[in-house]
Amino acid sequence: MVIQQDKMQSLAARMAQDEVKGRSPWADARKRFFRNKAAMTGLIILIAVALFALLGGYFAQWSNEDLDFAVMGQVATMGAPSLENGHYFGTDDLGRDLFARTVQGTQISLMVGIVGAAIAVIVGTLYGATAGYVGGRTDQIMMRAVDILMSIPYMFVLILLLVMFGRSIAMLFLGIGLISWLDMSRIVRGQTLSLKNREFIEAARATGVPSWKIILRHIVPNLLGVVAVYATLLVPLMILTESFISFLGLGVQEPLTSWGALISEGAGTMNYGTLWQLAFPLFFFVITLFGFFFVGDGLRDALDPKDR
């Protein structure tokens, strides 16, 4: 009886406790991610680059459009990086401040990468999850449409679009958005197929939860791990695509610029002793790509610990 009483008392004490906070799978993943040194380094780099893009403009002495007539014509000798005349990163070939230009290029390139990846995540996830969950003929038709779009050489289409409709940021976003979600929808569909027959989905169906709610509440949250990893790896791919297009001279239009355009300009003048014009944009480009790849790797390790 005494033992029973003890038990009852300890039970009563536990019942009286406040609601215990659960440790969600996300919290677990976060903990593993923060312990990963490479990923954390990547994350810090990315934060630094983002801050540079957001706040760099306030530190610039020159606007990105003004020409510095003092250095014009003698960029190789006068336009080198210096603190005195306020050109921290030197000037470009026309005498414009490279610091301000790099800040602007970083903004555009990051935006292209993030918008492209965001379109991929939203469209690709919903499209793939719907195809996989509904299945049957709907799935066949939806995935064959993806196959057809994928078989089109997208770079060619993108270049054609830019040539026909003029070079603009909106056109670039449209072109990149059109192609970026295809791979994502395939990955998501595959994952959905493996989730679809799990018992918790069956339980939701047996209860009568409507299909769209099952997709949004049960399937998508369980896919997000894969999606997050793929999205972080997609951002640098988008940046690379944009840089390639800009390098060809078809991307963003002056006075706007991007990393690709800046690198292209810098590469064009590297024989004349103005290496800084190549080095600064390239440095930001490379560390950002590294940052994204490390973060993506870290996320993958954090989100499926079984796959290591």
Partner: peptide
């Protein structure tokens, strides 16, 4: 559906891990 409910075989698999 609210009159007929079901209990499943695998206890852990029948619960959504993210909820």
């Amino acid at each position: 559906r609210s009159d007929i409910q079901m209990v499943f075989q695998d206890p852990l698999a029948s619960l959504n891990p993210r909820m």
